[in-house]
Design a protein around this nucleic acid. Structure first.
Lengths: 220, 220
DNA sequence: GTCACTAAATGAACGTGGTCATGTTTGTAA
DNA sequence: TTACAAACATGACCACGTTCATTTAGTGAC
């Protein structure tokens, strides 16, 4: 039997607040499982790492994994949460940029350049995020949250006259998320064709200016 | 042991061309497996139907399934091929429509309204198509083919001055596929918010005209 | 310390997708 | 007819994700 006591550096707290020994152990073990799994996924690929190997690396039994993550793929969804945090951060950081198109480029550039997984791990992560978006009924969903966070930004852009008022902010946000997703997909399938941030920027420009040939010479 | 001889109505051909007996049998059994599987997926959902149940319904052994489809999910990819055929058909059918934006609406409208699966089956199918796009190295890929088929259409649109020449046709096609995918996703996650064809049309218009506020009153 | 209570850990067992060694059928050629 | 090879079918078997009845151990009351 494996005996692993994660006493760590917070033993003092245990005496202070009730349940803390159990609860901190719980949080720490979840993090431990997550980190070990991530490390192994990076080294050998998601499909090639078994739950049993992850638990062995943590010194726990196979069944224990499922006390912390309902499914193997929830490790990847947990990763998605990191992206969400980055998104929040970026929106706050660039809220002062007055040109909305530029602000969007900065926001997405931040999200894309920070969370740099290996492309292969990124692929399975995105697929799992999409799968849970489509197949799992749940209160929150990463994609929906992205939309919700972008909506006020478009409302503002319409209000200050940088975006045409003919579409509603929510729909604009939704389409932009689509552009983002597709740029990611396009880059993941052909990474040799340039940087993913530049690809997204190009698609955003296309979206912003429109495809149609404008009358006469078209502006900037 | 199950003895199932699919002699069918083409026994005559067998005498005519060599190998035909074997080959037609092969095609027919593949089709039989496909149809039985599809029926069961529709009735009970993809995840709730086992390969063994499919083969039992066809009167064959489990292992035989894998002589016809390398994986369970290839049933769904086979479904994707139907969509591809629809796409070909639609491009040919509407090649005479001179307004390119209108033509695109007709093409995608055709594809979307014809292949009407239950949304749930559509979800797993799209996810498998995306998974194979991202994870399987293969010569052809549905998404890539869509792009390739749309590219000359955009080249033409640029040539006749309906689309701004500032982007290249391939990139325009790529972005349009993204719009299509995202419209599908948006509809699948919230089907109550209207028809999927109208949703795509709205997004196409947005893409075509652009988001930005144009100087003065914006045209048609 | 002891006891009852409960959260957490455990690993055997299960279900299912996928493999493989083996057996069988079919087409071909002597 | 017979011999042979290739295609095809078979189901026991395996690997891995997931479940669950049982055991272990933290906790609070006395």
């Amino acid at each position: 039997m494996n005996v692993v006591m994660f006493v760590r550096d917070n033993g003092g707290e245990a005496a202070l607040c009730r349940e803390s020994l159990r609860e901190t152990r719980k949080k720490e073990l979840k993090e431990e499982i997550f980190l070990q799994a991530l490390r192994m996924f990076k080294e050998r690929g998601y499909e090639n790492v078994t739950v049993e190997e992850i638990t062995a690396a943590c010194g726990i039994a196979k069944g224990t994994f499922y006390n912390y993550f309902p499914r193997k793929e929830h490790i990847l969804l947990h990763l998605g949460q990191v992206k969400r945090a980055l998104f929040d951060e970026a929106i706050a950081r660039y809220s002062g940029v007055t040109d909305v198109r530029q602000r969007l480029k900065l926001i997405f550039g931040h999200v894309m350049s920070q969370s740099d997984l290996e492309p292969d791990l990124m692929k399975v992560t995105i697929l799992e995020i999409l799968r849970s978006w489509l197949l799992v009924e749940q209160e929150w969903q990463l994609m929906t949250e992205f939309e919700q966070q972008l909506t006020p930004l478009f409302a503002e852009a319409i209000a200050i006259g940088q975006v045409s008022p003919r579409s509603n902010p929510r729909e604009l946000a939704s389409v932009l998320v689509g552009i983002y997703l597709h740029a990611l997909f396009a880059w993941l399938t052909k990474p040799e064709q340039g940087d993913k941030v530049e690809l997204f920027n190009a698609h955003l420009d296309m979206m912003w200016d429109g495809m149609k040939k404008e009358g006469g010479a078209y502006g900037a």
